[in-house]
Amino acid sequence: MTDAPERTRLGPPTAPSFPNSAADRERDFREAEGYRPRVAVAIKQVPPSLGGATDPLKGFVLRTGPGRLNPHDGPAIEMALRLKDRYGALVDLFSMGPVQAETALKEALSLGPDRAFHLTDPLLAGSDSLATARTLIWAMDLEGPYDIIVSGLMTSDGGTGQVGPAMAALMDFPFAGRVSEIVSLEDGALTVKQLYRDELLETRLNLPCLVTVHPDGFTPRLPTVRARLRPRLVNRLTASDLIAPNPDQAPAQAALFGERGSPTKILRTHKPKANDKVLARPTPPVAASVIIEAALKAKS
C-alpha cells in the first residue's frame, strides 16, 4: 500500500473537514501486524416492490411485507465477499435507514461478512445523496479505515447512482465505476475490469479506493443452511456516535445530517398520467397498412 502524499485531486478539500481519525497511525500499525485488507460495503434497504420481488411472467411487484436489499447491492456484497475468499479481506456492511430497515442487513450478514452497521436516527431522515454520502463516510471513518469501499450502482427507489461517486470525491479516493470483475489485489493496488456500454477497461487503482459495481458483474451467492440458522447481530450507530469528539465541530457537523444537510428538496410528486386515446380493432389489412405507411413516413 503506497503512502500517498497530500493528493491534489479535485481541488483542496473545503470546510468543514472530516473528523480527524487515526487513519495514518492505524495503517502503520496494521502493516506491522500482518495485513488483511479491509472492505466496506454501503447497502440500502428498499421497499419490497423495488427489491426485485417480481414475477417473471407478469412482472408484478409485492407492495407489502418487509423491505428487501436494493437489487444492485447484491453484486456489491458479492464482490466484497470474493475479496474475502481470495485475499482474506475483512468485510463490514453499512446501511443507513429507519429503525425497521434492518432486515436487509441481517439477510446480508448470513452471506458471510464480518460485521454489519445500521446507521439509524431520526436526525438522518430526509437525507439526499450528498447527506447520505457524508453520513456513510463518517460511519466508515469511525469503524475504519478501509482500503476498499464498494457500492452498488444505484438504488431502485432513488435511482440516482450518486452516493458512490460523491463519497469518492469527498474522501479523495480514486474511483472506478461499473466494476464487473476483480483481476487482482496486490502491492497496495486493486485491479479490476470496468464494463461501460461502449468499452471494457482493465484498470488499476491505488488503495484506498472506491468502486461501484456493475449489476451484471457478480452473481450474489446464497446463504448456506447453517449460516441461516446462526444468530445475526447488527451494530447500531446513531447520529451522536457519528459526531466528532471535538465539541466545537459538533454543531457544524449536525447541520450536515438528514434533511438539513440536503441541498435538494422535493417540491411535489405525482403519478404519471396516461393520455386518452382512440383505440381501433382493425382488420388485418388495415393494421398492416397503418404500420407500413407510418414506418415509411418516419424514415423519410
Partner: peptide, 9 residues
C-alpha cells in the same frame, strides 16, 4: 459518475 463528484465538491 462525474456529476456527483462535482456536486459533492
Amino acid at each position: 459518475e462525474m456529476a456527483p463528484m462535482v456536486a459533492a465538491r
